[in-house]
Write a protein that binds this DNA or RNA. Structure first.
Length: 471
RNA sequence: GGCCCCGUCGUCCAGCGGUCUAGGACGCCGGCCUUUCAAGCCGGUAACGCGGGUUCGAAUCCCGUCGGGGCUACCA
């Protein structure tokens, strides 16, 4: 039987990196086995689901390169792959379970439940504490699945091995809400059955729900799929990764200037490794080697520093032209219009910028001096060894050395300025630093001589003169 | 509280009974290079939670313990 896997995000938020990793692992597994990867939208929580979130999620998936074979917008035999379009189906299925004696109507009204929940919380207990202790009355309302007593539910999880739950510890759970919509358990399980899902690889937070899904799948007359529970992603404090830890969605990382290749590479490494001490690798190699059984059992902490390092590796590996093209819109954004003539000056410097950036916006920042006058100047690192007078002296000598320089290019600029440290009896670093700041405004910039060459004679001279009074 | 899962450097990953005085990567520290910042190169720091077994032999298997986490909703 050929592998069919799915990722089923709920459009109640943006694509979380944890979900993205689950998507990646499912995708890798499908590609590795020649199976089918499906994207389904689990939007049974009508109140919280929005189409904005849905498109955010799909955009992020596409951006990562996780293309799906069936699912939202791709067609296939199951319509829209959106649970909100199958509401009747779930309801009928729940009713059929009642008829078959597997489930029953439960009429505790939401206000009653709210009261119980409030009471529990008031006492510092879990919200569900009292709810299960009330015998279900019999009349209309929601439908609960009747969990069989005295039964062991055992299954073999691909990443964790054999896991067993006693049915007594599982409460009768709601499968159809009183408003007629299905809960996650029913909708998800029924879809998995209908769509012929063979492997469910999802977050470990759903491990305790798995016996419910197994029960439901059987009640629906189907063999449960094979489960693989992936370890959770944590923040630096060891708690589930969330907004509190800073960025937690793919879209945010994208906006910060991370490359999809770096993101995919990093996510792949969070709970899995291709072996051979390989750290940097692309999707092809991952597809070739990936298998769910090799996934790590213990949770992983999301380490932004390592992601950032990886991103730098990918930036340095880009073709220079691609790099320049990626930077251009960022520069245009902050400079306004950008004619080709001005852009050419950046292209000269571009490879030098590329070497020293880990995040795209940094690169734009380093290029900015070519297009705009420095608005402020970095605190000089020379302050400890050089006073205002010393700085003026450096700038004056630089102006003098460069004034009639011909031609204006890297080599000649370098030889003109090279004599300054000796003339001043100071180290080269201390001499060139004020010049750098005078011209770029920043103490972090591409190499000085190249920068001056790209900036051009007149602009460079103007800036040196202007900085004389400001530095 | 109950149920379930997890436990190798600060972090991610390798290790599947002997080759482990535990390997790679990020980070950190030092050095080289050097006009800054990076990059690059060289070196260093640092881990099998603990206690019992099993075995000739355990990071690797078993039990316990401690610690961490998840779930316990008409959220998913």
């Amino acid at each position: 039987m050929s592998v069919r896997v799915r990722i089923a995000p709920s459009p109640t938020g943006t694509l979380h990196v944890g979900t993205a990793r689950a998507a990646l692992y499912n995708w890798l597994y499908a590609r590795h086995t020649g199976g089918t990867f499906i994207v389904r939208i689990d939007d049974t929580d009508l109140a919280r689901s929005t189409t904005e979130y849905e498109s955010n999620i799909l955009d992020s998936l596409r951006w990562l390169g996780l293309d799906w074979d069936e699912g939202v917008g791709v067609g296939g035999p199951h319509g829209e792959y959106r649970q909100s379009t199958r509401l009747d189906h779930y309801r009928q299925s729940a009713e059929a379970m009642v008829t078959a004696g597997l489930a029953y109507y439960d009429d505790r009204t939401p206000p009653e439940l709210d009261a119980l929940r409030a009471r529990a919380q008031g006492e510092g207990r879990h919200p569900g504490h009292y709810i299960r202790r009330i015998a279900p009355p019999a009349d209309s309302g929601s439908i609960r699945y009747a969990v069989p007593a005295d039964e062991s539910i055992t299954f073999t999880d691909v990443v964790r091995g054999e896991i067993s739950f006693e049915a007594d510890t599982i409460d009768d759970f709601v499968i159809l809400r009183s408003d007629g919509t299905p809960t996650y358990h029913l909708a998800s399980t029924l879809d998995d059955v209908d769509y012929g899902i063979t492997h469910v690889a999802r977050g470990e937070d759903l491990l305790p729900s798995t016996p419910k899904h197994i029960l439901l799948a059987r009640a629906l007359g189907s063999e449960p799929p094979t489960y693989a529970h992936l370890p959770l992603l944590f923040g630096a404090d060891g708690k589930k990764l969330s907004k509190r830890h800073g960025a937690d969605s793919v879209a945010e990382f994208r906006a910060m200037g991370y490359l999809p290749e770096a993101m995919v590479n990093y996510l792949a490494l969070l709970g899995w490794s291709p072996g051979d001490d390989l750290t940097i690798f692309g999707p092809d190699l991952a597809i070739e080697r990936f298998d769910l059984v090799d996934v790590q059992k213990n949770p992983a902490i999301f380490d932004v520093d390592k992601l950032t390092w990886l991103n730098g590796e990918y930036i340095r590996a880009m073709a220079p032209d691609d790099f320049a093209e990626r930077i251009r819109p960022l520069v245009e954004d902050s400079v306004g219009c950008l004619d080709d003539e001005r852009w050419k000056t950046f292209e000269e410097l571009s490879p030098l910028v590329q070497e020293r950036t880990k995040l795209l916006p940094e690169a734009a920042g380093q290029a900015m001096f070519l297009f705009v006058e420095p608005l402020s100047y970095d605190e000089g690192s020379w302050a400890k060894v050089m006073d205002k007078k010393g700085v003026d002296e450096v700038l004056d000598l630089a102006v003098e050395a460069l004034t009639d320089l011909d031609p204006w290019e890297t080599g000649s600029i370098e030889s003109a300025l090279r004599t300054l440290p000796e003339q001043l009896g100071r180290g080269a670093g201390k001499v060139f630093q004020p010049i750098r700041v005078a011209v770029t405004g920043s103490s972090v910039s591409p190499p000085l001589f190249e920068s001056l060459a790209a900036l051009g004679r007149s602009t460079s001279m103007e800036r040196l003169a202007r900085a004389r009074s400001r530095l």
